[in-house]
């Protein structure tokens, strides 16, 4: 079992997301995250999909995706240089002054932004790779256990320039 990344170009049409998501659920493929958005061509949407699977299943996933009429192109991002980012928001509740100082320090060290805050609550924004975001969550959980609200976006990925040019 291994973590994989797929970049998927699809028709920007009603039902395409359901088609792709349905393929994963219908065939029992394990889907870790899926993000989707319009591209420079408005008729095309681009998905970044991450999943964990063995080699044989992953081959099937790619073939099955390719088979769908709505899919224009499947690119395997697993073993090529890519830039990948996931947006993570973390709200920390019940902060006293010492907590706030600690959070500002953590933000500085880990490259988080303070997106918003009031008397007792701080909202952190963290745009990193999925793995680094996991580390940030682990760290904050140590300090502020049961005081966190977390939302994360799933990764978006693009090939590094050396590869595209």
């Amino acid at each position: 079992m291994k973590k994989r990344w797929i970049c998927l170009f699809v028709e920007n049409e009603i039902g395409t997301l359901a088609r792709i998501a349905g393929l994963f659920s219908g065939k029992s493929y394990n889907l870790d995250s899926l993000t989707v958005g319009e591209t420079e061509d408005r008729t095309i949407s681009r998905m970044t999909i991450s999943l964990t699977s063995d080699d044989m299943t992953f081959e099937q996933v790619k073939k099955q995706l390719n088979r769908a009429v709505e899919v224009i192109k499947v690119v395997d991002y697993t073993d090529i240089p890519i830039y990948i980012r996931e947006v993570l928001f973390i709200k920390v509740f019940h902060c006293n002054e010492a907590d706030k100082v600690e959070l500002f320090r953590i933000a500085e060290v880990f490259g988080l932004t303070i997106a918003d805050y009031d008397k007792n609550t701080i909202l952190l924004e963290c745009t990193h790779s999925e793995a680094k975001n996991n580390d940030v969550i682990k760290l904050l959980d140590k300090f502020f256990c049961n005081r966190l609200e977390i939302v994360r976006s799933g990764g978006v990925a693009i090939e590094s320039i050396s590869l595209t040019s």
Binding site: I14, G15, A18, R19, G22, L23, G26, V69
Partner: peptide, 16 residues
């Protein structure tokens, strides 16, 4: 019906 048949046909579409 497009939602229902999506996984059992080659292509399904509603004309909009």
């Amino acid at each position: 019906i497009v939602g229902i048949t999506r996984s059992i046909c080659k292509y399904a579409v509603t004309v909009r």
